[in-house]
Amino acid sequence: MRGPRFLPGGVLRRLRWILVAALLVLAGVAAWFLFFWALSVGVAGYLKAVQFTPAKVAFYADSIRKGAEVTLKLTVISSTAGLVLGLLAGISKLSRNPLFRLPATFYVWLVRGTPLLVQILFAYNGLPYLLGPLWDRLQPLGVPPIQDVLTDYWAAFIALSFNVGAYNAEVIRAGILAIPKGQWEAAQSLGLSQAQVMRHVVVPQAIRIVVPPLVNNVVALLKDSSLAYTIGLFELVMAGQRIISATFRPVPVYLAVAGVYLLLTTVMTFFTNWLERRLQLRGA
């Protein structure tokens, strides 16, 4: 396939990537809305079938949809941030320079050695105290007070990102270590810089190894995000609790909540299996 003569191949390739990325984002947004619309319809049908007050069914179904949306949104942004953190920490842990290695090792040790619940409570209740004095100095710049910034949602985001980031770091470190020494040596002997060796030789091969365990971490994160319930975040579990307080019918509501989690994790598992197959199709 050849583009118009006046466009160099590189530009054309880049344009194609941008186009593909834009289409993917568009498809993602459309899928998102479609999914949650279908979810509220499905949940409403279920609630009707198990004989909730018909007048309230639409309201409850919408409540569960909202909770599920918060849960999934939180999972998506936390796992994205957690991927970046995991990459930084995972690569830093392998660095020969102690200025990188030691903080990364400390971070992973700290996060993996403490309960996520404590981390979430700390982010919500502790961080404002810890950062307060520093934050106050920024007030003249027009920064809103820390309580307004560190809402339940963003506190949960911080705790979940750092948590999954530490687990990702271990996965990424192991993935990089799994690349044979000969690959590094061949790339280095061609004159590639350390960064180029990473980018062109090590990371593309490590990705194949790390994608399945990284998605496992995201699935775990989706379930663990329910712990944000304890700091008052309106997510899926909270949505269920509210309905139970109003109806005193825990069994069908918990079943609905569990069902939504199962649906989300199953979709993710299907997606990884597909991705894994695609990654294996290309090359050895």
Binding site: G182, Q183, A186
Partner: peptide, 16 residues
């Protein structure tokens, strides 16, 4: 390294 090529016993081609 740019001026010195190397060939290894195990080939070490990039499999991807």
């Amino acid at each position: 390294r740019r001026e010195v090529g190397m060939v290894f016993q195990q080939f070490n081609l990039f499999p991807h």
